[in-house]
Design a protein around this nucleic acid. Structure first.
Lengths: 261, 261
DNA sequence: AAATTGGTTTCAAATAGTGAAACTTAGTTT
DNA sequence: AAACTAAGTTTCACTATTTGAAACCAATTT
């Protein structure tokens, strides 16, 4: 007998509210949230109060709007430094970027989405901060497909249910069957290609990062523009990319936390 | 009649658990958390489960440890971009840094602590990411004192209660009375100085960022080392610093959210 | 002055959280 | 190998918290 999906009690609902505010991507008024909320007025109201009290949301009394709270920045700092692959992967990412001279991305999976946790572009260092934390869909990015292909069946099913299959470009795999076929191919081949499936003119090659027990923990990719390279050029980078991913994978396992200032 | 401080119900407790995990700063086992937790075993256990389910924590099944979850990175990205002063302040911070040739910091207040949300050092851009999200005490940093001095009395009292008054250096103002006197001076003077109160050899001048209604929303500082400059040199930068803070303050007010990529 | 909209508070009913104790592994020790 | 121990998980009756319909309180608008 099934009970409703997975509400995770009061805390789960509060996190749902957090996500909702985040999804607006800008300061938002109570009534705007209410009109798009599964919760009744007083319930939503109390959640907003509690979360604001807690610093997870910020309330602008002049404008009467809610936005994401500053406490999240502190907590995420911790996440970024200790839980993500960033500290381990950094040096490998950098040297790969130096070697191939193209943008290298590091991504992890979060609730059906690909979350970019680091980005290294040989030419400019500036975008990094703005990029870390960005999300992209799983089904139509190199890193996304690389991760999906190596999930356990249960994880994969769950994740595939969460995809929207929007056709961003003519090349997008826009249904589950097409994606499943592609994933099978990726699993055999070891790496995934993004053939302008998410953005016109952008292609990439991505490799999953696996622990020795075969658990996927993320993916690395080399991304470039069709102006400069073709998929066949990216294929040549496969050995470098895979080596980099393997290094990160094995190190992630041995990892003992550093006291990294 | 007082009831217990401010627990904010179940959600508040869950956030307390989140903070506790963050405070370890490294992957941590259930028993380590338990031995330092106000909650009984099953209660803590359930919170950890829920938070992990929600992606606010990450559980490493191989090592059986908890660390901060990747979902926080996504949420904080939103916070950093939309709720913090960063997007408004960036250009002003950069030009100030270029003008004075020293490190410029942008900070906001979070639960008694100073939280650095951006840092610009003319010479290297690299530290920025590692620095954003870092925290420091309020009572012994330039930015901290600048913010404290301009809070409402209620906010200030609350914040002063949260300070530890640890004497990091001989110059630290290590009790509430001394700090209060200093804050009065700062309020008159408009800017705060850090005379090696937090770290030996590091001094700074900091200005609060105020809205037109006089609400403090953060602070900017110019920080340098005693090897290069003295407090009297920093005093000369006061007009530049204050101008920068004012620009940020007025813009923060007019701010209409951008659809910033 | 009446009506509407946006935000806040009340309060009894219902639900979800609590934690002592019991249980299950996995790892030691005798 | 049996007996002990420590770490993690589950149960279940008890209780505290959450819930949301309805009422209330500004501000605006008509």
């Amino acid at each position: 007998m099934f009970d409703v999906p997975n509400a995770d009690g009061t805390v789960g609902k509060a996190m749902q509210v957090l996500d909702q505010v985040a999804s607006f991507g800008c300061p938002v008024r109570f009534s705007e949230l209410l009109s798009d909320s599964p919760f009744p007025k007083p319930t939503l109201y109390r959640f907003l109060q509690t979360l604001t009290n807690q610093g997870m949301l910020a309330f602008d009394p002049e404008r009467q709007t809610y936005s994401m709270g500053i406490r999240l920045v502190r907590l995420a700092h911790s996440a970024w430094r200790h839980s993500s692959l960033v500290p381990i992967a950094r040096p490998h990412i950098e040297s790969l970027a130096a070697k191939v001279g193209e943008a290298v991305h590091l991504a992890q999976f979060d609730n059906g989405h690909v979350l970019f946790v680091d980005k290294y572009k040989a030419t400019d260092m500036f975008e990094t901060l703005a990029q870390a934390g960005k999300i992209a869909p799983g089904y139509c990015t190199g890193v996304g497909k690389a991760i999906l292909a190596f999930m356990t069946e249960a994880q994969q099913n769950h994740a595939l249910d969460q995809q929207s299959y929007t056709a961003y470009t003519p090349a997008t795999l826009s249904d589950r069957a097409a994606l499943l076929a592609e994933l099978a191919w990726i699993r055999e081949n070891g790496v995934a290609y993004d053939r302008e499936e998410h953005e016109q003119g952008i292609i990439s090659i991505a490799s999953p990062i696996l622990t020795s027990k075969g658990r996927v923990v993320g993916a690395v990719s080399i991304a470039t523009s069709t102006n400069r390279y073709k998929i066949s050029d990216l294929k040549k980078q496969k050995p470098h990319l895979v080596k980099c991913a393997n290094l990160i994978g094995t190190e992630a396992e041995l990892w003992q936390v550093p006291t990294w200032s």
